[in-house]
Lab assay of single mutants.
Amino acid sequence: MPSETPQAEVGPTGCPHRSGPHSAKGSLEKGSPEDKEAKEPLWIRPDAPSRCTWQLGRPASESPHHHTAPAKSPKILPDILKKIGDTPMVRINKIGKKFGLKCELLAKCEFFNAGGSVKDRISLRMIEDAERDGTLKPGDTIIEPTSGNTGIGLALAAAVRGYRCIIVMPEKMSSEKVDVLRALGAEIVRTPTNARFDSPESHVGVAWRLKNEIPNSHILDQYRNASNPLAHYDTTADEILQQCDGKLDMLVASVGTGGTITGIARKLKEKCPGCRIIGVDPEGSILAEPEELNQTEQTTYEVEGIGYDFIPTVLDRTVVDKWFKSNDEEAFTFARMLIAQEGLLCGGSAGSTVAVAVKAAQELQEGQRCVVILPDSVRNYMTKFLSDRWMLQKGFLKEEDLTEKKPWWWHLRVQELGLSAPLTVLPTITCGHTIEILREKGFDQAPVVDEAGVILGMVTLGNMLSSLLAGKVQPSDQVGKVIYKQFKQIRLTDTLGRLSHILEMDHFALVV
């Protein structure tokens, strides 16, 4: 994948999101292997301009796509893939009243899908469409860049269908997702969380590099694949309309690839034109409109599966009536509230959605109805927002919020430890010299600072030695090549209790 991002070429006709291997024109390309080798690009942008032909009021008969309808489940399912879809609609009884809503608040519980998330729908649909058009064949390999849930859905379907599955996901995604993927037989590649989507090191860039190296491999490409919004247009939206008897006044959905909100909203605009569509985008993402909503100094966020630093091709923002931004604290607070007060075992993005819903639905009156999409299960986040310690460490809970008995030293300040200034190293000294210094002084790690004293990161003896043994660096290389740029900081005025929580999850903390 090139470091400079080429513009994806656009073909003359058809839909841009065809499933299957992508040609340089962004659509299915038939021909000899030699032709494909000559024409197939190194990668295709996940934010390529959409060429979708959908228009409100256009006859369904003019759609270029294969459409399906929700099917009634048999008493005995032939395999677990038949437990994807037909998820329950559940009334939220307490939270709406707590925040003064007059309307009825309903939750579409997508964590009841077989793999635990709304992404099971698009995973199965992308595979079925690729099999139907002859792209996927027995023994082929599926590769997908994902925040985890699409990966789980694909790995689940691949396990049943017999495909090899490789999932490329950023490091910030939970260990629970990784464990589930491994249990399903998927191979996992992790990428830096802070890598831009168009960087060769991003999950998108690495996935395309693997595709170019592995024979008979395919990126189904949830960011561009029409099967993504079509899955929701054909099934999720129809289920909502049936469950609500066609009567709903507002739908609120958090947005990642945009397939969920695009597919549902398009069908609702056709069948229930008075329904307002509300999009939820986390602070630090750029999906919301108008652009002024996205202006923030924050560039990272903890909530998973929603928000991006690019506009995915499948996201149709014209069908969203209003956007709201959400933050991590309210997302996790509301997710825990949904679990504790409503018994809905949902993930953090569901918290984002409901946090926005109780604001947006203030305009609705008694007798009206708001539906929220709860995308995934708490299963993926047992060591994250479900953990009091994690919430404390991230600053989303305060010590006084917890009532468990603490040891005698818990409320003492870090400054009472009488710490001395640490050994520091410059980023320009060599790895070999740094190892000598650390061994001589008896230290395992040291902060790396520039000549102005600005902290650049941390270097550890173990990481340097393993990097040297693996051949990633040489003793003569500058130590700046092996620094940890993500590390926890703590102030002298913070409590030892807070430091204790940090050290339970990290090997060190830097006192500043």
Rank of each mutant, 00 (worst) to 15 (best):
G263R: 02
K177P: 02
P16S: 05
E110G: 02
G256L: 04
C272D: 15
P78V: 06
A183E: 02
P33V: 10
R18M: 05
I142W: 04
T193Y: 08
K25A: 02
H22D: 02
P170S: 08
K177D: 02
L220I: 02
D179R: 02
V178D: 11
S61L: 09
P88I: 09
R266E: 02
D35R: 07
L77S: 04
R209H: 02
E144K: 13
K177S: 05
S19A: 13
H65M: 13
D221M: 05
V10W: 10
I76Q: 04
G259C: 02
R182N: 02
E213H: 05
V10H: 02
P21R: 05
L101R: 02
A253L: 15
I142A: 05
E128V: 13
Q222P: 11
L154F: 14
C275L: 07
Y223H: 02
I122G: 02
S3W: 02
R190T: 06
V180N: 02
A107F: 05
P16V: 02
L241C: 06
R58Y: 02
D120Y: 15
T191S: 06
K137P: 07
A48L: 02
K102L: 08
R125P: 11
A71W: 02
T236F: 07
P12I: 02
H17F: 06
W43M: 10
H65P: 06
G85D: 15
S227M: 07
E110S: 07
K25I: 15
N212G: 14
Q55H: 13
T260A: 07
L251I: 10
P215A: 08
L106I: 11
M250G: 02
E104V: 15
R18K: 13
T68E: 10
A183Q: 06
K75A: 12
G100Y: 02
K25Y: 02
Y223L: 04
P229I: 11
T68W: 09
V204T: 11
K98Y: 07
E176M: 06
P192L: 02
R58S: 02
Q7P: 10
S27N: 14
V118H: 15
L77P: 02
H232R: 06
S174T: 05
Y163M: 02
D245C: 14
H67W: 02
H232K: 10
T235E: 11
V204R: 02
P59G: 02
G134D: 13
K25W: 02
